[in-house]
């Protein structure tokens, strides 16, 4: 039976960290090991398969539900990672591919190769470090919200009952006092996201299909979801 899987290419500490973090979302986690990759300790938690860059990737479709799966390209060598990304994109047009890059230069190439999201390791690490030093409080709060280390959550709420807002503009609503949440952004159906207090956003009302990016405590968010629709995840 085809399973919703996270396919992680690369057998290294990055791959294992990714596997540990996404395991709860997927029925199956498979780590693909390039022939020359060695890791001191074999992973006991996840199934490990070998691969070669010349493999026929279409065979994956027989084992995994590729429509609902996600691919992580986490090889340590950027050139190989780019080649792998472009090979996988050639075989699967719509699958989500998240690739790791050492630096920005490789990140651009990975985007060109068809990666849906690229994580430039050096830049990401460096920007977190400088954020920690420049804005320690902001970084800690955002970190806790984003990585769910506190009760505070950030969520995307899908609006399905726009009548609830009675045609009001987002900046007119007293979110804090009425619902105990803070709405930061509205993502319109055309995928343009706008900060709710920016001058452009003020011309848009809230419509069905919009997504609201909200920050708040879980209970308040849940209550708010019940009012406007279901939580989008």
């Amino acid at each position: 039976m085809k399973t919703r899987s996270a396919l992680i290419f690369g057998y290294n500490e990055f791959a294992l960290e990714i596997a540990n973090n996404v395991a709860h979302k997927y029925e199956n986690i498979t780590i693909f090991k390039l022939d020359d990759e060695t890791k001191e300790k074999e992973s006991e938690k996840y199934s490990v398969a070998s691969f070669d860059l010349s493999d026929d990737w279409n065979t994956l479709e027989s084992r995994f539900d590729m429509e609902n799966s996600v691919i992580f390209c986490a090889l340590l060598d950027d050139a190989t990672n780019i080649f792998l990304t472009i090979s996988l994109r050639a075989s699967f047009e719509s699958v989500s591919i998240i690739s790791l890059a050492k630096d920005k230069e490789s990140a651009n190439k990975l985007t060109m190769a068809g990666a849906s999201k690229v994580i430039p390791i050096v830049q990401t690490t460096a920007s977190i470090i400088s954020d920690m030093l420049k804005k320690p409080i902001v970084t800690e709060v955002l970190h806790n919200i984003l990585y769910e280390k506190s009760n505070l959550k950030i969520a995307q709420v899908h609006v399905e009952q726009d009548t609830f807002f009675g045609g009001q503009h987002p900046y007119e609503i007293d979110w804090k006092n009425k619902y105990g949440i803070i709405v930061l952004f509205i993502v319109h159906e055309d995928m343009n996201s706008e900060f709710i207090y920016s001058s452009k956003a003020s011309h848009h009302g809230i419509k069905n299909g919009d997504k609201l990016v909200v920050v708040g405590y879980e209970e308040e968010i849940k209550l708010f979801e019940q009012n406007v629709g279901s939580r989008y995840e």
């Binding site: 996404v22 790791l100 952004f185």
Partner: peptide, 19 residues
């Protein structure tokens, strides 16, 4: 950090981009 980013990205891509 990469692991947590991956988790957020597959869970809440829009919220992740916002942050």
């Amino acid at each position: 950090l990469v692991g947590m980013i991956a988790k957020e990205f597959i869970g809440k891509p829009v919220a992740f981009e916002v942050i």
